[in-house]
């Protein structure tokens, strides 16, 4: 977790506070798919977000999905407050390969800044090496770097600066 926090502070440029571990809300569990609905978890994150938090990122080892898709690596509220990533499918073990905590961590960093990027209004980027490029497969995650391309970076910098300056902490009223 510390590594992810460090990566976010470096790349996004905002201080990170870590909260106590939480349990995923049981209503997010989709029994017949044996997965967890990330939209439901995001809603719970909105409810528990500290009032002074700029953005919230949840990290879970549960396998996430949304109703219309077989799985997601993560999900975010576009231009919103909350985001989540799952390490379930970032682990080589998931694909029958030998475990590699370093690789898993590296992938988790990339997906974390990707989802946080969405909360600052970034959409998918056509540059395959940019963290904002869409990954539908771990292979895609490995192609991209744990940083943004120039275009995404400058967009993000403006948004983060504006968000840090704004005391009202908007985005909370946004519904999922």
């Amino acid at each position: 977790m510390e590594t992810i926090a460090e990566c976010i502070e470096n790349i996004i440029g905002a201080p990170v506070h870590m909260l106590e571990d939480l349990d995923e809300p049981m209503e997010a569990f989709v029994e017949k798919r044996n997965q967890w609905d990330s939209s439901v978890i995001l809603r719970a994150l909105i409810d528990m977000a500290p009032p002074d938090a700029l953005r919230v990122l949840g990290v879970t080892s549960r396998d996430l999905c949304v109703p219309v898709l077989t799985f997601v690596f993560g999900q975010a509220q576009l231009d919103g407050l909350v985001s989540i990533i799952s390490t379930a499918r970032l682990k080589p073990e998931f694909y029958g390969l030998s475990a590699s905590p370093d690789l898993t961590l590296e992938r988790a960093c990339k997906e974390s800044i990707h989802e946080l990027g969405h909360t600052f209004g970034l959409v998918h980027c056509g540059d395959r090496s940019c963290a904002m490029s869409l990954s539908t497969h771990v292979g895609d995650v490995d192609i991209k770097k744990a940083e943004f391309c120039r275009g995404c970076r400058s967009f993000l910098r403006d948004r983060v600066t504006a968000a840090l300056a704004d005391e009202s902490r908007p985005g909370r009223e946004k519904q999922l």
Partner: peptide
């Protein structure tokens, strides 16, 4: 007709820009 279906697909497509 199913809210969660259309919302989750829409959200995902919006992340794509």
């Amino acid at each position: 007709d199913e809210l969660i279906m259309r919302e989750s697909l829409a959200a995902w497509l919006m992340e794509d820009g």
